[in-house]
Structures are given as structure tokens and as C-alpha cells.
């Protein structure tokens, strides 16, 4: 690999990992969502660098929309949307820190110690058309299954989220009678 490519790779990885870390350190949910998008943009950059140009760009395309929707949800649900106060809402902090570090060390050890098969790098010019032929050729069943899964997801999430169901208001039917909300328990 040539020098500029390496530099771009380290830049993208730094962006990806740094933004990923900032996601859980941001004061506002909107910032957290866009830090997460930054992490995806970093990964998309690496994908483009290794020759999967189409996948990288599609990742950015998807994430821009998804993270914006996420930001709107955050502003809707969170008590501190503007990020004016420090926000730290964690539980079992030490355990999860340990779990995170352990999974990083474990996966990193595999990455560094295991020996993987080596193959010549793919031809970037052919990567996209290869993917297209694969999508509508050998892996057509997988592709179509993904499409059906997405369709059922749409139907399912509309059914879950709709205010007005077939049998009246969604809240009426699903709330258990006499189930008070335990506020001080939180």
C-alpha cells in the first residue's frame, strides 16, 4: 500500500474510533447521534479505501437519514434535548466498561495473533458490478429475503407505533388495568 492511502486509512480509523467514543460522552442526544454518524462516515471511508466504494457510499447515504431520525427521536424523548447540562445516564458502569475492554482485547488479540488466509486485493473497478451480479444472481434469495424482512419490519413497526389501532386506541388495549407508573422507582 502506498503512503497517502495509509495516511487516509489512519485518519478514517481515528475519526471512526474517536467519534464512537464521543457518542457516549456527549452532553446532548443530538450530538451523540451525529457523533455516531461520524463513526459511520469513518468506517465508510475505510470501505472506500479498501475498494468497496459502493458499500461505503451507501453506508453514508443510509446513516445520514437514520441518524437524523434518531436525533428527532432523542429530542422527543429526552429530558435534556438541547444539551445545556451535562448528561450522564449510565448504570452498571464498571461492569460494562470491563465488558467493553474485554471484548476489545479479545477481538484485538484474535486480529493480531490468528493467521488469516491472504489473497490478492480485489479489483476496485469490478467490485460494484460484481456486487450487482451477486445480488441478482447467486445471492438473489438472500437479497430478496432481506427485502421481505424490511417490508415486514415496516408493517410491524407501523403496527407497533400507530396511535390508533384496529381495535381502538393503542394505549387503551395495551396498558394493564391498574398498573401505576412507578416514578420514584427510577
Amino acid at each position: 500500500m502506498t503512503e497517502p492511502l495509509d495516511a487516509l486509512f489512519w485518519l478514517s480509523s481515528t475519526v471512526a474510533v474517536f467519534s464512537a467514543w464521543r457518542v457516549f460522552r456527549a452532553d446532548s442526544m443530538v450530538r451523540a447521534a451525529y457523533w455516531l454518524m461520524g463513526s459511520f462516515v469513518g468506517v465508510a471511508g475505510i470501505l472506500v479505501l479498501v475498494g468497496a466504494e459502493f458499500l461505503g457510499l451507501v453506508l453514508i447515504l443510509m446513516m445520514a437519514g437514520e441518524m437524523t431520525i434518531m436525533a428527532v427521536f432523542m429530542v422527543m424523548f429526552m429530558m435534556n434535548p438541547a444539551g445545556l447540562n451535562p448528561m450522564n445516564m449510565v448504570h452498571q458502569h464498571r461492569t460494562s466498561l470491563l465488558a467493553g475492554v474485554l471484548s476489545f482485547v479479545g477481538l484485538g488479540a484474535i486480529a493480531l495473533l490468528a493467521s488469516f488466509p491472504q489473497a490478492p486485493p480485489p479489483d476496485p473497478a469490478a467490485a460494484t458490478s460484481d456486487l450487482g451480479h451477486e445480488l441478482l444472481g447467486g445471492s438473489m434469495l438472500v437479497f430478496q429475503t432481506a427485502g421481505v424482512a424490511l417490508l415486514s419490519t415496516m408493517i410491524g413497526s407501523i403496527a407497533l407505533a400507530a396511535q390508533r389501532g384496529r381495535y381502538g386506541s393503542a394505549a387503551e388495549g395495551s396498558e394493564e388495568p391498574g398498573a401505576p407508573i412507578d416514578e420514584e422507582d427510577a
Binding site: 443530538v30 451525529y34 454518524m37 466504494e53 459502493f54 457510499l57 451507501v58 453514508i60 447515504l61 445520514a64 437519514g65 441518524m67 437524523t68 436525533a71 429530542v75 438541547a82 445545556l84 476496485p124 473497478a125 460494484t128
Partner: peptide, 28 residues
């Protein structure tokens, strides 16, 4: 003139949404 030029353009337009929303959100 990228091999995936259309997707690149689409990604740029998708990020316009992020830029405009952040412009509105950040003014508090």
C-alpha cells in the same frame, strides 16, 4: 468522476439534511 458517481451525489444530498437540521438545532 467516481465509478459510483450517482451514489456519491446521493450521499452528498442526504448529508444536506444533516447540515440543515444541525443549522436549525444548534442555534438553540
Amino acid at each position: 468522476d467516481a465509478p459510483g458517481g450517482i451514489v456519491l451525489f446521493g450521499a452528498a444530498i442526504a448529508l444536506v439534511m444533516v447540515a440543515v437540521f444541525l443549522h436549525g438545532w444548534s442555534a438553540n
